[in-house]
Amino acid sequence: MVEAAWAGVVRWLEENAPGNAAALAPPASEAEIAASESAVGVAFPAEPRAWLLVCNGVRPAESAYDRAHAHDDGCFLTDGWHLLSTELIVEVHERQTPAPGRSAEEVPWRRSWTPFAVEADRMDGYLVDASTGVVGACGDYGEVRPSEFPSLSAYFEHVLGEMRTFRTVTDGVLDRD
């Protein structure tokens, strides 16, 4: 199901915003996914795993200085957010996980959450709860909205609807909101 929803996003990008489509990374390997799962200490839910097997997020920026960030054309989600690779899933997960001695009230991040899309500073983002498959969101100041979309498929269908309805394309790239 997630493959079909994602294919709709890719098809729309290829036909309408080829610059953004070119920023998509190739599929992750089973070994890359397994290494990320091991690093965060949780098996990824079925939908994020299936999506990573067809697209490992977006390409990183081209300059050595900016390699930790997404390629500009990869920031095609609403508000200029971008999809994460297996490597960046680990980085974001580690960044959000509370440091020893900090309570869940201070930093409400759960180990079972798998981030998959973030804004530039990687603090606001979308995640999939491994225990439910539900897509939630987290913010800079610890706010969490645990159920934004019922699934990753529903999220990608939402993205496609937004691109078709509300977004404009200039020179083959979606304009940032």
Score class of each variant (00 low, 15 high):
Val54Gln: 12
Pro98Asp: 13
Asp73Val: 00
Asp72Ser: 08
Glu157Ser: 14
Pro146Ile: 03
Glu119Gln: 15
Pro45Val: 06
Asp171Pro: 04
Leu174Ser: 05
Val169Leu: 02
Asp66His: 10
Asn16Lys: 02
Glu157Leu: 14
Val10Leu: 10
Leu83Ala: 07
Val173Asp: 00
Ile89Glu: 09
Ala35Arg: 15
Trp113Ile: 00
Gly41Asn: 10
Asp121Thr: 14
Ala117Met: 01
Val2Trp: 12
Glu105Ile: 10
Gly136Thr: 02
Leu160Ala: 09
Met1Asn: 10
Phe156Glu: 01
Trp51Glu: 01
Val135Tyr: 05
Ala4Val: 07
Glu14Ala: 10
Leu88Gln: 10
Val10Gln: 12
Glu106Gly: 09
His93Leu: 06
Arg11Ser: 15
Glu105Leu: 13
Gly57Pro: 02
Arg145Gly: 09
Leu24Cys: 03
Arg102Val: 15
Tyr65Val: 15
Thr165Ile: 04
Ala7His: 04
Asn56Val: 02
Glu47Gly: 06
Thr86Ser: 09
Tyr155Pro: 06
Arg95Met: 07
Asn20Pro: 03
Ala50Val: 09
Gly8Phe: 08
Phe44His: 04
Ala117Gln: 03
Gly101His: 14
Ser29Val: 04
Pro108Gly: 07
Ala35Gly: 07
Pro18Asp: 06
Ala4Tyr: 12
His93Ala: 03
Asp79Arg: 12
Gly19Lys: 06
Val40Ala: 14
Val118Pro: 02
Ser131Cys: 08
Thr114Gly: 00
Cys138Gly: 12
Glu157His: 12
Gly80Tyr: 09
Ala137Lys: 08
Met163Tyr: 05
Glu148Ser: 15
Arg110Pro: 00
Ala31His: 05
Ala117Asp: 03
Pro108Arg: 02
Asp171Leu: 07
Thr114Pro: 01
Val128Gly: 01
Asn56Glu: 01
Ser36Gln: 07
Phe116Met: 08
Ala104Asp: 08
Ala43Lys: 15
Leu127Gly: 00
Asp72Pro: 11
Gly133Phe: 03
Tyr126Thr: 06
Leu52Gly: 05
Glu91Trp: 12
Gly101Leu: 09
Thr170Ala: 11
Leu160Asn: 05
Gly74Arg: 09
Ala22Phe: 03
Ala23Phe: 02
Ile89Thr: 11
Asp121Phe: 14
Ser153Ile: 08
Gly101Lys: 07
Ser36Thr: 10
Arg59Asn: 03
Ala39Lys: 13
Leu13Thr: 08
Val40Glu: 09
Glu148Ala: 15
Arg102His: 13
Phe156Ile: 03
Gly172Thr: 03
Gly139Val: 02
Ser153Tyr: 09
Glu62His: 05
Leu152Phe: 11
His93Met: 08
Ala120Ser: 14
Thr165Asn: 13
Val144Lys: 00
Pro100Gly: 07
Pro150His: 00
Ala50Tyr: 10
Pro60His: 14
Val134Arg: 04
Phe166Tyr: 14
Val128Ser: 02
Leu13Gln: 06
Asp171Ala: 13
Val92Ile: 14
Gly172Tyr: 01
Ala154Asn: 04
Pro60Thr: 06
Tyr141Met: 13
Arg67Cys: 12
Ala25Met: 12
Tyr141Ala: 11
